[in-house]
Design a protein around this nucleic acid. Structure first.
Lengths: 165, 165
DNA sequence: ATCGCTGCAAACGGTTTGCAGGACA
DNA sequence: TGTCCTGCAAACCGTTTGCAGCGAT
C-alpha cells in the first residue's frame, strides 16, 4: 500500500523551491522581482493549499504588500514552470499548492472544515491505465476528489450521543 | 469488469424523468410551470452534459424563451431533487446531466474536443472504501476526472505520419 | 537603456439576487 | 386569491486585462 506523498514539505524545502523558481525565471530571461519571490515564498512555506486571497492575506502580515493581479500572475507562472499545482475544490475559487516531483492528483476534501488531504494508491495508476486502454483514450492528467467528512467533523456531527467508551 | 452506466438514456426516458420531476414538485407543493418543464425536458432529452448556456440555446430554437435566471434556478432545483447532477470540468462554468439511479462520478474528458464520457469500475468503489477506512474519512461523494485526448483527437494530433495500414 | 514587471482600477464572465408583474393551485 | 414563479437588469465575485510608471538585467 502506498502512503501520503507530501503532507508537508520537509524543513528547508521552501528555500530549495525558491532557488528552483529563481533558476526557472533566469532560464526564461524573466526578471526575479521581490514580488515574485514573496508570493513564491508564501506558497512554499505554507505547505498547504492556498487561494490567491490566502496568499494576499499572508503577505499583508509582514512581508510587504503585493497587488492581487501580480499574485495571480505569479501563481500562474509557478504553475507554468511546474513548481505549483492548481486545484479546484468546488469552492468558487482556485487553490494552489507547492508541487514537488510527480503531480498530486488525489485528494480527500472535508466539506465541513475544508481540510484537504492528499493520498496516493498505486492501484489508481494502473486502473487509470486500464480505463484508458479500454477506451482508446490518451490520459494526460487526472483529478480524484473524495468529498466527505474528516474524522473530526464526522465525530462532531454524529457521535454526540455515542461517547467513546 | 463494469461497463458504461448510461452513455445515453433509453428512448422514452425523457418522458419518465419529466414525470418524476412533476411529482417531485407537487410533493413539495411547488408550481409546475411551463418554464420548469421546458428546462427539464431539454436536459432529459439531450442525454449529455449541458451548460446553462446550452440549455438556453436549445430553448431558443423552438420550445419558447426562458430567462437565464430561471434556467439556473430550475437546474438547481433538478439537482436538489436528485434528477440532475452538476459537474465542473474546469471550463469556467458548470455542466448538468440527467441523473438516473446512482451518481455518475467518473469521467473521461477530452481537452481537445470537449467530449465527456462516463465510465465505471467497481474497483474504484472498493478503493474509495479502503482509503476512507485508512484515513478515518467519511466519504459522501467522489469525482474522478481523467483529462486527455479521445481516440479521435489523439490520432489527429499525432498520427498524421502513421496512416492505418 | 531596454524590456518587462507592478499596481491600480476597470473589464470580464458565469452565476445570483432584487423587484415588479404574471402564473399556478 | 394568495403564494410562488418569471424575466429583466443589476449585483456579485473570482479572475483577467489595459495602461502609466517603475525596476531588474
Amino acid at each position: 500500500m502506498s502512503e501520503v506523498v507530501t503532507p508537508r514539505p520537509p524543513l528547508g524545502c521552501a528555500a530549495v523551491m525558491l532557488g528552483l523558481f529563481r533558476a526557472a525565471l533566469q532560464e526564461r530571461h524573466l526578471p526575479v522581482t521581490h514580488q515574485r519571490e514573496a508570493v513564491a515564498q508564501v506558497l512554499f512555506e505554507s505547505g498547504g493549499h492556498l487561494s490567491a486571497d490566502d496568499v494576499a492575506e499572508r503577505l499583508r502580515g509582514g512581508n510587504g504588500h503585493v497587488g492581487k493581479a501580480t499574485i495571480y500572475r505569479t501563481l500562474g507562472l509557478l504553475v507554468e514552470v511546474g513548481l505549483a499545482a492548481e486545484h479546484d475544490f468546488d469552492e468558487g475559487f482556485k487553490r494552489y499548492e507547492t508541487r514537488i516531483g510527480p503531480a498530486h492528483n488525489d485528494h480527500l476534501v472535508c466539506t465541513s472544515c475544508g481540510e484537504v488531504v492528499e493520498f496516493h494508491r498505486d492501484e489508481l495508476d494502473s486502473l487509470q491505465e486500464q480505463v484508458a486502454r479500454d477506451r482508446g483514450f490518451h490520459v494526460l492528467t487526472r483529478q480524484l476528489k473524495l468529498y466527505g467528512l474528516c474524522a473530526l467533523c464526522d465525530s462532531e456531527s454524529g457521535d454526540a450521543l455515542r461517547p467513546a467508551i
